[in-house]
Design a protein around this nucleic acid. Sequence first.
RNA 1: GCCCCCAUCGUCUAGUGGCCUAGGAUACUGGGUUUUCAUCCCAGCGACAGGGGUUCGAAUCCCCUUGGGGGUACCA
Length: 485
Amino acid sequence: MSDIRVRFAPSPTGQIHIGNIRTALFNYLFAKKNNGTFILRIEDTDRERSTNEFEEVIHREMDWLGLEWDEGVKVGGDHGPYRQMERLDIYQEYVDELLDKDLAYYCYCTPEELDEMREEQRQQGQPPRYTGKCRCLGQDEKDKLEAEGRKPVVRFKVPKEEKELIVDDLIRGRVSFSSEVIDDFVIVKSDGIPTYNFAVVVDDYLMKISHVIRGEDHLSNTPKQQLLYEALGWKSPRFAHLSMILGTDKSKLSKRSGEAYVYVSEYRKKGYLPEALINFLSLLGWSPEDEEEILNKEDIIKQFSIERVNKSAAVFDVEKLNWMNGMYIRAAELDQIVELAKPYILEAGYDLSDKSEEWIGLLVDTVRGSLDYLAEITDHLDIFFGELEYTDKEKVVEDFKQDKVDIVFETLKDNILALETLDPQEIKKMLKKTLKELPVGGRLFYHPTRFALTGKGSGPELYNVIALLGKEECANRLDKALSLR
RNA sequence: GCCCCCAUCGUCUAGUGGCCUAGGAUACUGGGUUUUCAUCCCAGCGACAGGGGUUCGAAUCCCCUUGGGGGUACCA
């Protein structure tokens, strides 16, 4: 293990967003690439919205994608606890330190007063910032406000003198902020729980995080955090801010920004393969040196480097994901796809109880070529189950009524019934042989047969269809077609 | 409003001053394979946001404009 330590620090406040999991992925890749440690920390300081169920969601999706963490909740480690609400006493220690050093102070302003203040500033064309009103409250004033029942927050005292704050970002280079745009921000809420900006600093330091890799939406928080590191006398970690992932409408990927799904769970439920999602996500903002884009996790780890991470935001192109997922579905071991596909088949109401594993395997193999994701499989199964239905009966019957089609069906029926094996390759040979025997061309052979057997004008290879249907069912369907002439 | 980030085909991207008449992938279109569809193979379409500089030479460096994104909370 090197001393490279990175963390993924989600809040358990909802389903896990695809952009968040991409952040997790990049942290994971960076850790693995550098033989470092990948840590999972739960930032549950939002008491309103955090729940255990959502923490479970985080574990579940990370597990599904194979983003195993070396240290953190569940697995433990030397720098825990890894849930912020279990670290309250730790934060207290540093709040006290800041208060003692006069680098922080109690503020008794109510949210309503704050709103009013900001509104006033806005009207005067001023940027809304905290005025520092409670900076120099005397003890008697504090007592008075406390007697009113006010619960104070703790604010950090941002140095008065104007100063340039540089964030040296691994992806963006040196980004400069003026300390004047930063106001005395809250570090402890009135309920005694630290805010994100404070807890994240204490935790990253104590957990010896070497690189903070997170979304670009945190870039403007970074100077505040650096101020905190400075005040506490700590060396800050390196920062790397990843670009955002956008929806097709170019706004931040959200429920309403186009056709792509927003939550990891949705991709899992639709039957995207974790390998494909990982591969696709890795290419959002990062690119390998050579041109091959189909890469497994090991390939990606081997080639990953933060220098090749792109600065610009990326649109989540579900079309390309679909293509890539299809590639994985086709390339995967059949058994694996069968196991993954079964639940969808069952859920759609198709009965597999009397089918052999071999038959199910052939079924899945027959249709997997046309799938973008596994849930789509149910669109291709009706021809193999239950009563045959013609999608366009009039057209089908018209097809059947063509000259010589009766001979085609009769001959084919006999040849199918005479089959010694249901091996698709043998059936393929039989089909070719049958066509040769017949006084018709391919057009009068394959098309009517397809209609007779499947009721549709297009679909999987006929030899697979015959193998799946079995001799009896094929004969029945051919008879039915004959009766319609 | 203010602060910050970003800007190459529709989309993901390569490109770090000459290898660029800008490469790959996807999507789309056409052809081939499969006497269906899909897969697969081949071909085509398609971009340096605009304007100024710097330079012998700019997709690459600088500035402005425009556009997009993020932040501006007792959310994270």
